[in-house]
């Protein structure tokens, strides 16, 4: 904590204490949020991978995705909360959700600069064909709450076979790299696709400010 923070801390504490009553609930939540914003900025740093056995996953009888946002050092277990015409929405306990279509990320919520929606039909087709070119469209909200849309030109290429292990279970996968470009923006998504076409593992762009989402299907 810097010197400035040490000076601020009691001040903010005093403000929190001195306001009370139901009419001040909102004031209090604002002050608390500000306090959190000031003092908990150092969120990044790698989160520890949760330790449990394959047997525990199977006994739960549920599907999980282990998802991480490297730029924030966040890692969470997601559970499926809804399906809408092939779009599966998975949510974490801390209020973040990720939506995939055929294993390709099409939306996130609760991360701030979220991916609002994406059209990934080209990428889905390219992965099925073992590679090729694709056009994908992303929608974001800009700083003034307006929808902005990007159209990326992408090339999907196989980067060879890889055997990956996720909590004691191994899969023979083909690793695909999807390199996309729009103006000055560039990013590369990586998919590990099993023989059954399931994307077991991936690293996919959420948004430029947040960076990538790592997902593993458990």
């Amino acid at each position: 904590m810097s010197r400035r923070m040490r000076i601020l801390a009691p001040l903010i504490g005093a403000l929190t204490l001195s306001a009370c009553g139901s009419g001040n609930e909102e004031n209090l939540s604002v002050i608390r949020s500000l306090r959190d914003a000031i003092f908990n900025q150092g969120e990044s740093g790698a989160a520890a991978r949760p330790q449990f056995s394959r047997q525990a996953i199977e006994e739960s009888g549920q599907d999980f995705i282990l998802a991480g946002v490297p730029s924030r050092g966040a890692l969470a277990l997601l559970q499926q909360a809804g399906t809408n015409r092939g779009a599966e929405t998975w949510v974490a306990e801390d209020g973040v959700s990720a939506t995939y279509r055929n294993g390709i990320l099409i939306a996130t919520k609760g991360l701030g600069p979220d991916l609002m929606a994406a059209d990934v039909s080209g990428t889905v087709a390219a992965l099925r064909q073992g590679g090729g070119t694709a056009v994908r469209t992303h929608e974001y909200l800009d700083g003034n709450d307006q929808i902005i849309r990007y159209r990326y030109e992408c090339a999907v290429q196989s980067a060879g076979s890889e055997r990956i292990t996720i909590y004691e279970r191994s899969y023979d996968t083909v690793k695909y790299e999807e390199s996309c470009e729009s103006g000055l923006q560039r990013f590369t998504n990586t998919f590990w696709v099993g023989q059954d076409g399931v994307v077991w593992k991936s690293r996919q762009l959420i948004s430029p400010p947040v960076g990538y989402l790592d997902s593993e299907r458990l």
Binding site: D142, I148, L184, Q185, F187, S207, P208, P209
Partner: peptide, 11 residues
């Protein structure tokens, strides 16, 4: 084509 924060990417 310029997104706020695009600076974190390659450009």
């Amino acid at each position: 084509t310029i997104l706020a924060g695009a600076a974190t990417l390659a450009a």
